[in-house]
Every structure is written in C-alpha cells, then in structure tokens.
Computed example of a mutant assay.
Amino acid sequence: MKILLVEDEAHIAKALVVNFQAQGYEVEWAATGEEALAAWRSTPCQLIVLDVMLPGIDGFEVARRVRREDANVPILMLTALAADEDRIAGLECGVDDYLVKPFVLKELLLRVAALLRRAQWMPPPATVFSFGQAEIHPATLEAVVRGKTHVLTRIECDLMRHFAAHPDRLISREELLSSVWGYEADTATRTVDTFVMRVRKIVEPEPAKPRYLRSVRGQGYRYHPAGK
C-alpha cells in the first residue's frame, strides 16, 4: 500500500513518514501542491494524505484536480482550519475525510488504515436509486436534482445509499462511521455532521429546513423518503 503524503512542514512530514513506514506502508513525500500532482500522476498510490496550507497550489486545489481524473482514490485532508465553512470547502473539493491539526498520531493512523481498508472492499457500482427528489447514479457518481446534475464523491454516494436502504429509521453517527467510513464506532469526529451538511446542500430544497434528512438531537439522523 502506497501513501502520497503532501505536507510542507519538513519536521511534521518526516515524523509522519517514519510512522507510516512503521505500519508497513510505502510513502512518497511531496512538499508542494505542484510536487504532489506530479507525483500522483507519475506513480499510483492508494491514499493521499493532504495538508491544506501549501506553498503555491493549496490543498483544496490539489484535491479538485485529483478528483477531475480519479473519483476513487481516498483523500484525507489535514487542516488547521476548524470552522464549518472550511470543512465544507474541503468536502466540496472531493475529500473523503479531514483531520484538524493538531491531531493525535494514533487517530491519524486509525483513519488511514480504515480508508485503505474501505478502498479495498469498495463494492461495485450499484443501480440508480432515489434519495428524496434526487436520482443518484453510483456508476458515474452523479446526483440529478430537479434537472440539475451534481458531481458526488464516493463517500457522499455511499452515505446516501445507506440512508436510502434504511428509510424512516433512526441511524446513529456511530453506525454511519462504521458502515460508510469503516471507522471504529468510538471515533471522535464531526465528519458525519459535516458530510450531512454537504448532502443537504445537494438534495434539500431548503438545506436549513431539511425535509428528507433530519437530525434527531443527540442521537443521529432519520431519512424520510416522502419528505414529510
């Protein structure tokens, strides 16, 4: 398994390279966005660990360019930007998850392992399914909503597929982390909430007043296919 690590701070990068290699991964390190894109295009990798704040092309733009050519390679973004709008910006670029700096090394290693496992057992594209007023096309990673086509990430598609398979049932964040991301249920993260915000922006007529994907305070979410 090969990881492309994109990090401009040498002391952080060297420490991560040592720890990734100790887990048995092959690692290629790029210090700039330009180096990252060149490395990614020249040698296949199974995961990209991507810092946001880079000299030249930033991490957001690197993720956008990768996603234009590859919808499946997992991208884990490392960011010092903790605001919701910054997390949403990362998701809109196509990343699979993010980890806010400073982070605990063990947490990073667990997420890396889970994303790599998920990439290995990723099921083949399923048939088209409905999600609220949206028509979801897993084979092309597209959502057609009221005549407009939106490009999805693999995680967004799988998240909607999980909700669609369990209509009108309370689904906890822990269940989603386990079933969609492959994480341990006790993982401390706002990943699920941030992805739900992104999905609502795509499928809900009024994302601030969701009809289909509703929050159940302190417990999780419930998907209402009829929007009532």
Rank of each mutant, 00 (worst) to 15 (best):
T127P: 07
Y223C: 03
I171G: 02
V17R: 10
A226N: 13
E204T: 11
L159S: 00
P125K: 05
R161H: 15
K148E: 13
I57T: 05
E26Q: 15
R67S: 11
K148A: 14
K14E: 14
D86M: 02
V100F: 02
H166T: 03
V52P: 03
A83G: 09
A22M: 15
H162W: 14
V144W: 14
V95Y: 05
L4T: 00
R214Q: 14
P55W: 01
K101G: 02
E92D: 12
Q133L: 14
M53N: 12
F195C: 08
L170F: 04
Y183R: 02
I3M: 02
D70K: 07
R68S: 07
D168A: 08
G182I: 01
P205H: 03
M77Q: 15
T191R: 11
D70E: 05
T191F: 00
E26A: 15
T32L: 01
L108F: 06
R198W: 00
P167I: 05
V6I: 00
F129I: 10
K14C: 09
R68L: 10
R154M: 07
E107I: 09
W181E: 02
T127I: 11
I155Q: 01
G182T: 03
Q133E: 14
V18R: 12
G24A: 12
L5C: 01
L108T: 11
R111S: 02
H137Q: 13
Q23N: 12
N72S: 15
L37F: 01
I202V: 15
V112Q: 01
R67A: 13
T189N: 05
V145S: 10
P205K: 08
L110T: 13
R68Y: 04
L159N: 00
I57M: 11
P167H: 00
R173S: 14
C93L: 07
R211S: 13
I202S: 01
V17C: 02
A126K: 08
V17M: 10
L116R: 05
I57K: 09
F60M: 13
V104H: 14
G56P: 00
L81S: 05
P44R: 02
W181F: 12
P124T: 10
A63M: 05
T43L: 04
C45V: 15
H11E: 11
P207D: 13
E9V: 12
L110A: 12
E206D: 13
K101T: 13
A89C: 00
F131L: 08
E142N: 09
P210C: 11
I3N: 03
S130H: 09
W181Y: 12
P167S: 01
T140P: 07
D193E: 15
E206H: 10
A126I: 04
I155L: 10
G59P: 02
K2E: 09
E34P: 02
Y25G: 08
R146G: 10
L4Q: 04
W181T: 04
E107P: 03
G90Y: 09
L54V: 03
I88H: 09
A71V: 09
A89I: 00
A126N: 06
H150M: 06
V49H: 00
